[in-house]
Design a protein around this nucleic acid. Structure first.
Lengths: 146, 146
DNA sequence: ATTTATGCAAAACTTTTGCATGGGA
DNA sequence: TCCCATGCAAAAGTTTTGCATAAAT
């Protein structure tokens, strides 16, 4: 939780009201928030915080791999997902846009392999599967029965 | 290559000039294009195609898992990556925004496991790692030597 | 005290819509 | 022929900028 605050501090960034407000909103969300969600949430938590700072903070959190923007459903606005422990995994239904999270990915081994082979230093990852959820498969099956 | 055209057809979509133009531009790119890139490319390939149709087509290709929007570097505009064979894997350097692609992911097994366990039908996936590329690590190391 | 970050409000873009028309199958 | 898809141009949003001021350390 508040180790996000630690990380900002350690990286040399000040713990300002704007940043704290954005973190609070993101941490209390269910894992997927649009920029609009964050703007609204921050307006409630601390009305004095300006819109620009919200975007600046989202960028900062992205650079620190605390958060990651991704598309869900319509390509309109990005969703920001928390990367607790540096990673996140989910399935996006391409029909109803539902998001199904799952815990494991077994990617630690690949990460280590890539770090050695490519001389990179990895801080996080996001794994997304696309497809149809159980409900949408059912609906499609039903529709085809006519 | 042209099996993208097949897939559109099979899914019941017409092979219009707009869609063909977008496909051509995307297929001849290096794997990462912004919407602006596609707009510019299409304007060259077929000036009669309107902007709206480019966006409509990008949405369509996304729903078909032919392409996937993602963020690279600044959170400004999405990049569209081709998902040849339904998947794509890359490392994004959070310092210089360089993209390093890699072939292997060993995710087939996980995909099958998830399909069974969650009753979903998966059509593709995107795996992104975040971290620092070799060059950026060197630069950071040098800077810290002062 | 310093330096970093902020708020504000306008400017710059990007995407989406609505509707009459054109073009694939 | 029929219905899907398009082009156009305006509308709707979303992000970004520039700069004087505030506030963290």
């Amino acid at each position: 939780m508040s180790d996000h605050r630690e990380r900002l501090k350690l990286a040399g960034y000040k713990l300002t009201k704007a940043r704290l407000a954005v973190l609070q909103v993101i941490e209390h969300a269910d894992g997927h928030v649009t920029s609009a969600d964050v703007l609204d949430g921050v307006a409630l938590v601390d009305p004095a915080v300006g819109r620009a700072s919200v975007f600046r903070t989202l960028d900062l959190l992205t650079r620190l791999s605390i958060v990651r923007p991704t598309y869900i459903g319509t390509s309109a606005t990005p969703y920001y997902v928390l990367l607790p422990g540096g990673h996140h995994h989910h399935i996006i239904c391409t029909v109803c846009s539902r998001v199904i999270e799952f815990a494991e990915c077994g990617l630690e081994n690949i990460a280590i392999l890539l770090e050695e082979r490519l001389k990179v230093k990895l801080t996080g990852h996001l794994l997304e599967f696309y497809g149809q959820c159980a409900d949408c498969q059912d609906k499609i099956a039903v529709n085809n029965e006519d």
